Computed example of a mutant assay.
Amino acid sequence: MMLLTAERTPAGTSYLATGQGQPVVLIHGVGLNKEMWGGQIVGLAPHYRVIAYDMLGHGASPRPATGTDLLGYAEQLRELLEHLHLPQATIIGFSMGGLIARAFALHYPQHTQGLVVLNSVFNRSPEQRAAVIERTRQVAQYGPNANAEAALTRWFSHEYQAANPAQIAALRQTLASNDPEGYLTTYELFATQDMYQVDQLDSIRVPTLISTGELDPGSTPQMAKELAELIPGAQVAVLAEQRHMMPVESPRLVNQVLLDFLNRAQTSENPAKGIVA
């Protein structure tokens, strides 16, 4: 088992780092923390330097100031890279982390070696937007635990939930223990920023992979394909029979997709565009 000790940047960001080689940074989803990446840390660290951190308002990192926007979350990542003396890294963001990864690539292209957006949102339909706004209202009224059971049902297959009750219970506890203000600030951004600087996406000129699960109801294959169309040279990988939390439910499958992309990106400025079923 790989045992890691969390460290902190001068600004208070809590992070884990292991492995050698080109740096890869992992950004978790709203309500979660850096611990969600255990399967990816084990799978990627033999080949890359892997850094996972707690976004603002989550885990052991500080709460975001009131009114913090996506740029503020991207600036947290910039401070982390500066602390680690890393001029560039490949940024891998999951769900809300995918929005932060996109914002980072837009605002800090000089620090972005590659971009991976996993199970993230883009161009929600009116119905999807109304549903997530309603969830935000519930979070504001009842706190981080407001949508936990519905979220777990969306995130995992029934089979995985039944086979891993201890892990599901731990995730339920993680959601419930979030700082209410930090969680709400982050969730409001998650609910409203799926079209963040959409007219600037064609300025992203690094190797890019957009991936989601075939059965992800909130971060759909259509979203992934539409987002990839706006980023020059972006690849799409839709993983068959996978739901939202595919990095946790199917780490070997996700790791293989990530390693294939990362290895190709090492040998090419921009991998050939394509759709992987």
Rank of each mutant, 00 (worst) to 15 (best):
A272T: 06
Q256S: 13
L171Y: 10
H83C: 14
D216G: 03
N123D: 15
A140M: 03
Q110H: 15
E181H: 09
L99S: 01
Q128M: 14
P144N: 04
P180D: 09
D260W: 02
P271R: 14
G67C: 04
E269A: 12
T90G: 01
L77Y: 04
G59W: 05
R124G: 02
P109L: 11
N123H: 12
L86P: 01
T212V: 05
L189G: 04
M245I: 08
G39P: 06
D216N: 09
R49W: 06
E226W: 02
L227V: 07
M55I: 10
T90V: 11
D54E: 10
L239Y: 03
T192Q: 11
A148C: 12
T192P: 05
G29A: 13
P165S: 14
N270G: 15
Y160K: 10
L71W: 00
R172C: 11
Q20S: 15
A170H: 04
D194Y: 02
M223D: 05
N255C: 01
A17H: 03
G19T: 09
G67N: 01
G29F: 04
A130V: 10
A176V: 01
V50T: 03
A45D: 02
D54Q: 08
V24M: 05
Q22K: 14
P126Q: 08
N145Y: 07
A240I: 00
A140Q: 12
T18A: 15
H83A: 13
S120G: 11
T112C: 10
L258I: 00
S61L: 05
G233R: 06
E149L: 13
A150Y: 07
N178I: 01
W155Y: 10
Q138L: 13
M96E: 12
R129Y: 12
S14V: 07
A103F: 00
H47L: 15
Q76K: 08
R49T: 01
P62Y: 01
E127T: 12
R102Q: 12
L99M: 12
K273I: 01
A162R: 14
N270D: 11
A166I: 04
Y183D: 10
S95D: 13
A237S: 13
A191F: 03
S95L: 01
L71F: 07
L99Q: 03
P23I: 01
R78Y: 04
R63K: 15
L227A: 05
L3E: 13
F94E: 03
P217L: 04
E249N: 05
T66L: 14
Y183P: 07
P251E: 07
G98Q: 05
G98E: 06
A52N: 07
H28Y: 00
V254E: 07
A224C: 08
H47V: 12
V117M: 11
T90M: 04
L70I: 06
Y15D: 12
V257A: 05
T192C: 10
